[in-house]
Amino acid sequence: MNLDREVIKALAPTGVLRASINLGNPILANTSKSTGEPEGVSIDLARAFAQHLGVDVELVVFDAAGRSVQAVASEQADIGFFAIDPVRGAEIAFSAAYVLIEGSYLVREESPLLHNDEVDRDGCLVAVGKGSAYDLFLTRELKHAHIVRAPTSPTVVQTFLEQELDVAAGVKQQLESDCRKHAGLRLLPGRFMVIRQAMGVPKTRGAGAARALHAFVEEMKDSGSVADALQRHSIEGASVAPNEA
């Protein structure tokens, strides 16, 4: 990628690319058990983009999507990795999606709920991670069920169990992991949404910065880099998003 100096300055005004990393989404980022450092698909992409810009990268790490988004919106970070959503789009310019992720519902074994379309009923209490893509989506879509917000996405099932709620909503892989940790839980079949995971930059950085980020993501998909990262980090249940060029 041949980038104009002004575009590079817009993307990394401090001379270092500050990448907002959300550890609340296990498909994108985790803490390495061996080193204690962040690792995952989003970290690989952040480092690759910094290399394209010819600058160093600084990881700004958060435990929840809402905080990670706010860091970019308030320009405490230069780029981030988020689900595309119109609410976030007010302040953040999104790239093309690079990964597609499924959102699922979790219930207790004895729950009368059998299908996703049965969740939106009066009196149904649904746990979601505050500020997550699921929170934003379900806030718009659920007309009868009531949303209860957990502090972070990884604490959704804990909140669901402690408050004796009816449904937990989140990343399918995270819920599957929680099912293995807690007996008597099951996932409803299928998915209630597909999340288009993208990179984002503050809109204040200008159209040139947004175009450069979009082009980078498309290049990473076309070259097989995103697919390689998913395989390298043993990520299942996520797929490379189609090219949007």
Rank of each mutant, 00 (worst) to 15 (best):
I92C: 08
Y105N: 12
L185S: 10
R47Q: 14
N243K: 06
I101A: 10
T31Q: 12
F160T: 04
L100V: 07
A227Q: 15
A97T: 02
H214N: 15
Q231P: 00
R140Q: 14
A50H: 11
E6G: 10
I8W: 04
E39Q: 13
E75P: 01
A64E: 11
A77P: 08
V87F: 08
G131S: 06
E164W: 02
R196L: 01
A71R: 06
G224D: 02
H214R: 14
Y134R: 00
D56L: 04
R67D: 15
Q163P: 00
M220K: 14
I84E: 12
R18I: 09
S153Q: 13
S225V: 02
L142S: 03
S132Y: 01
E102C: 02
V107N: 06
P189D: 06
I84G: 01
G208K: 08
L114T: 13
G24A: 03
T155W: 11
M1Q: 10
S42N: 09
A227E: 14
A207T: 11
E109M: 09
S239Q: 13
P38D: 10
S68E: 10
L100S: 04
G224P: 05
L113V: 03
I147C: 01
E91R: 14
R18Y: 03
L53T: 13
M199E: 05
T14F: 07
E58M: 10
A71S: 15
F216H: 11
G170K: 08
E37A: 08
H146E: 06
A212Y: 03
K221A: 04
D122T: 13
H52F: 00
V107H: 05
G89D: 09
A19K: 10
E75W: 04
T14Y: 07
P154N: 11
L17A: 04
A209N: 09
S239P: 00
A97K: 03
P154L: 09
T155Q: 11
I84N: 01
A83I: 05
S68Y: 04
K130F: 06
D78I: 11
H52C: 11
A10P: 14
D228C: 02
A64P: 00
V240W: 05
C179W: 01
L23Q: 10
E162M: 09
D135S: 14
A65I: 00
L11N: 13
L185Q: 08
T155L: 14
A48Y: 00
V126N: 04
K203I: 07
H144D: 03
S132W: 01
A145Y: 15
E75V: 12
A238S: 11
D166P: 00
H214W: 09
G103D: 06
A212S: 11
V194R: 08
L17R: 13
F192M: 08
D122W: 14
M193S: 09
Q70I: 04
A133M: 02
Q51P: 01
E58K: 15
K172P: 01
T159K: 09
V72R: 07
N2Y: 05
F94G: 13
D56G: 15
G123P: 05
Q173A: 13
V107W: 01
A212L: 05
E236F: 05
T152E: 10
E58F: 13
V167F: 10
Q51G: 12
A19Y: 10
P26H: 10
E164Y: 05
I195D: 13
K130V: 02
V69M: 06
F49P: 15
H146Y: 09
V126E: 03
L185P: 00
R47F: 02
